[in-house]
């Protein structure tokens, strides 16, 4: 449980077997059972031999259904899983890989997130989408289970329910995989504060300044809070989108995104969101950026790995 976003391993973690597969009539099954009972009652009353035959034939289908539904699920193994980090407020997609070692095909396999009973209702609502899959004999299938990532830090997929109503939808067989899967959830990338592009106060070490006034280095879209003097008025007059002139100075161009700069927001979560927003912006603009948190500093860099490192730091703050 502790390893975040477990790397896919070839090792089989759990295989469904007799002790792990549960079966119970589904809603439709109960409907059919009531109907069969009515037929049986009618047969008794009218002493109708064919009525007896039909009710016992349907009853037989029900009983046989137990075997077939069980057979459709038993022997399936959870092989691996993976989830890419997401921002809070979006959907996290877990890729769960199931292996079928048997020589028969599995139909209508359905995954769902089912943590313990305690907060079942809340978690159930969090399921956005679950796929239904067919798994061929002796093969693996990767299924996507999409949950809503509401809060930062991480989303645990602790218990996956694998179920199937094949072949008649009158019985549901299910089992649970205890998976170590979790998805890192970055703080939502929102914030009103302008990125601290103005860096005079920081000093001029090579890790500091990301923006000077010396050399023109191109345009970028205007953001609330940009100094008025950096606005490219000429372009604005040409009815282009509002752009801001960028200058480089001090021989280095790295932004420092500091925890301290967000102090005005007060609330920790809001400050993390703001930092997250800045990181995303900086990454989008192709800037080098550094992150300074109270107990952690990440040196300036860019690229997806760096971005992930910074956002992870925020997520786990």
């Amino acid at each position: 449980m502790s390893t975040p976003a477990a790397a896919p391993t070839a090792q089989i973690l759990i295989t469904l077997n007799r002790k792990r597969v549960y079966i119970f009539p589904s809603k439709h099954g109960i409907m059919l059972a009531v109907m069969v009972f009515v037929i049986l009652l009618g047969s008794v009353n009218y002493d109708n031999a064919l009525g007896y035959l039909l009710s016992f034939l349907l009853f037989g289908l029900f009983l046989i259904g137990v075997l077939h539904t069980y057979r459709n699920l038993t022997g399936l193994s959870y092989v691996a899983g993976d989830a890419k980090p997401v921002f809070a407020g979006s959907d996290a997609t877990f890729k769960v890989t199931i292996e079928n070692t048997a020589d028969w095909q599995r139909y209508n396999i359905h995954l769902a997130h089912r943590p313990g009973l305690s907060n079942r209702w809340r978690r159930r609502r969090s399921i956005v989408r679950a796929e239904i899959a067919t798994i061929k004999p002796r093969s693996i299938a990767t299924m996507n289970l999409t949950l809503a990532a509401t809060t930062r830090v991480s989303l645990h997929l602790t218990r996956v329910r694998i179920s199937s109503v094949f072949p008649l939808s009158i019985l549901r067989a299910w089992g649970y995989f205890e998976t170590p899967l979790q998805c890192l959830v970055y703080p939502q990338a929102i914030g009103q504060l302008a990125m601290p592009l103005d860096v005079h106060a920081i000093g001029e070490s090579n890790v500091g300044v990301s923006q000077g006034n010396d050399d023109f280095a191109g345009f970028r879209p205007y953001q609330a809070g940009d100094p008025i003097r950096t606005i490219a008025w000429k372009n604005l007059a040409k009815q282009d989108p509002v752009l801001v002139k960028r200058f480089t100075g001090g021989g280095s161009s790295a932004v420092r995104l500091r925890w301290a700069d967000t102090a005005v927001l007060g609330d920790t979560e809001l400050r993390l969101c703001q930092l997250s927003h800045w990181i995303v912006e900086a990454e989008r603009l192709g800037l080098d950026y550094a992150l300074e948190l109270p107990e952690l500093t990440i040196d300036p860099n860019s690229g997806s790995a760096h971005c992930h490192a910074c956002l992870s730091a925020l997520a786990l703050y």
Binding site: V44, N45, Y52, S55, F56, G60, L61, I64, H68
Partner: peptide, 22 residues
Amino acid sequence: YVAQAIPLMIVGFFLFPRIPGP
């Protein structure tokens, strides 16, 4: 599937307690 249900049907038919009268 249906063929497997038929033996069960036969057993049910003959052994289910028959109640006389409507």
